[in-house]
Nucleic acid binder design. Structure first.
Lengths: 99, 99
DNA sequence: GCATTTTAACTCGGTAACCTATCATTTACA
DNA sequence: TGTAAATGATAGGTTACCGAGTTAAAATGC
């Protein structure tokens, strides 16, 4: 989902929605709704503006594997999960339940 | 310009606008206006539909160098030249003479 | 502690533009 | 010339995108 990707890549660059908005020229209300997947079908112009400010290609913005989605906070949480003794099966069930 | 690229890539695949339209699910009137650069800012959904039918990536659709100088007609002519037995040297001389 | 300011993100209504459906025109070819 | 396929023009529905205002929380000052 494009919104999630924008959010991840933006946070990776430590930008707020407002900052990305002023720099890219895309309304922050729109960025917000994109990131929450209320809007899911941006035009290339918007994508190119994002890509330019985030210093990546449109292709990377759209499809490139974002293993960065596992940021430092998530890594900490993962450690805690593993340390707590929760099994992979339990986690998968939890994820299924939350879908 | 995206419209020109769509046109080139479509013709490269020997598809009519109508065929691309029915296969991709994008209205042919819209494809037509895109190719004539009346519309210039499609959404990713449209781009992805095109890319899928044209068997290329969205990135290629947007940016990859299109060899428009050598269109289908020129390719046919090239084949005829080669098939006719004319040597490369002869062709170069011919070009020089015409300059 | 509380009030004020600042920063970040969300809500909502409006508008411009993307995209579709329909009809008209051109082209191709028998 | 007639017919079908391909392309082009137009109008309208739908939605991408914007701007102003609101809320929430953090930062700063007293």
């Amino acid at each position: 989902m494009i919104g999630y990707r924008v959010k991840m890549l933006r946070e990776e660059k430590k930008m707020s929605i407002s900052e990305l908005s002023t720099k890219s020229g895309v309304a922050k209300s729109y960025i917000s709704s994109l990131e929450r997947n209320l809007q899911t079908n941006p035009t290339i112009l918007v994508l190119e503006k994002f890509a330019s400010i985030l210093c990546i290609t449109v292709d990377a913005l759209l499809y490139e594997q974002v293993d960065h989605s596992m940021d430092d906070e998530w890594k900490e949480i993962m450690k805690d999960i593993i340390g707590s003794g929760i099994s992979k099966e339990e986690m998968r069930e939890f994820i299924e339940d939350r879908k």
